[in-house]
Amino acid sequence: MTVFVLEQLLNGLQLGVTLFLLAAGLTLIFGIMGIINLAHGSLYMIGAYAAALVARETGSWLLAVPAGLLAAGAAGMLIEMVIMRRLYDRDHLDQVLATYGLILFCNELVTLLVGRQPMFVGIPPGLAGAIELIPGVPYSIYRLSIIGFGLALAVGLYLLIQKTRLGMLIRAGATNRDTVRALGVDIRLLYTLVFGLGALLAGFAGIMMGPLLSVQVGMGEQILIMTFVVVVVGGVGSIRGAFFGAIIVGIVDTMLRGFMPGWMRGIISDTAQADALSAGLSSMGVYLLMALVLLFRPQGLFPART
């Protein structure tokens, strides 16, 4: 039983760091520019597709990863320069409409370019296979490396934001946009960079998830909703919140899926009803968590310091 719990913890952590990569960008973009970017999932999809295509054509992950990052980052900056700039002063409804339109646009564009069939890419050869981290439970090396990369990126992001000049500007921009602009900082360039950084992180999440899931049109929307839950639970605009929020949501979701059927069968004798109920409750779990957070700590568990 403890082995099972440990394995599910690892699974939860892996989902958590993936969510963090998406939520960090989403929360940065909202915190600094005040934009609700529904198209964030599209950047995740673009990264996954670019890497999958390059991996399929060349067979090399050393080329595929930079290609995915480049595609997602470039797409992000392009979107910022062409579309987002016109939306900073508009209200959130306009932003939501425009970025929702972007989702449809990106999905159709990818359908035109690559087709509707999902793509399947293999795990990079060096990371295939499983190791027995916990005795008796061979765990996928690839999933472990996702956890590793995700945590490393979290540390890197922390250092970038806390210790560098760019990070200082980002923090300042999040606190008071107008003052930063008045001090002579090129805020437009800063916005483009932040949007590009968010896109880069989303793209990296997409690249890593490609070999686990299938790379397909609409994959971004599946994870986007969960990402919004993370941002709300963690606290809007807070990177720290995004990190802890993501880990909490990842673990809660995985644990509920792993243990709910067992618990429900203990409570309800009719197995068919127990299973139906547990399936419903476990997919509801994270939203319930979000509702509780909104009820008792509406600013989020780890709000941005002001």
Partner: peptide, 18 residues
């Protein structure tokens, strides 16, 4: 063991462990 997944689910790590 009997488990329902979600129709939009693509990651089955929790089910594999079960």
């Amino acid at each position: 063991g009997e488990q329902f997944t979600r129709l939009d689910q693509t990651d089955y790590a929790a089910e594999m462990a079960a």
